[in-house]
Amino acid sequence: MQPGASSVPVLDLGGILLISIQGELPDDAAVDLRTDVTLAVSETGARGVIIDISGLDMVDSFLARVLAEVAASARLLAAQAVLVGMRPSVAITLVELGLALPGLETSRTVIEAASRFGVEIRDRGDQPAARGTDRTPT
């Protein structure tokens, strides 16, 4: 892993940043992600940040804190962050853990979150994983 650069790509969808976290994130990569997103928001002047976590099968308090911090930093730069695609098992676990993340905006899918910012993404219907299901896509 390169120091200072997170393994998670930050995509610019025209005023909206899309961060899709695929698979498990080591702690240092999560911290890098926070830096990368904040920089990207300030460089692009994005008004929205969509964080897609449909690929995550676990979110612990460390990652929850990083996600909350990404949202808080984005807000300081006048961008709204939306957390998207959390799986049921992850949601149940976070609630039991006592982390309901009240400050974070959430949406079911990337498409829905983008439409909140007036960006239309056409559903090609070939990405079941992006729906945040606990079931393995076939």
Partner: peptide, 12 residues
């Protein structure tokens, strides 16, 4: 309340 909180985390 837990159920509502979990649904909200999922975006519903």
């Amino acid at each position: 309340m837990k159920t509502v909180a979990a649904a909200r985390l999922m975006g519903a």
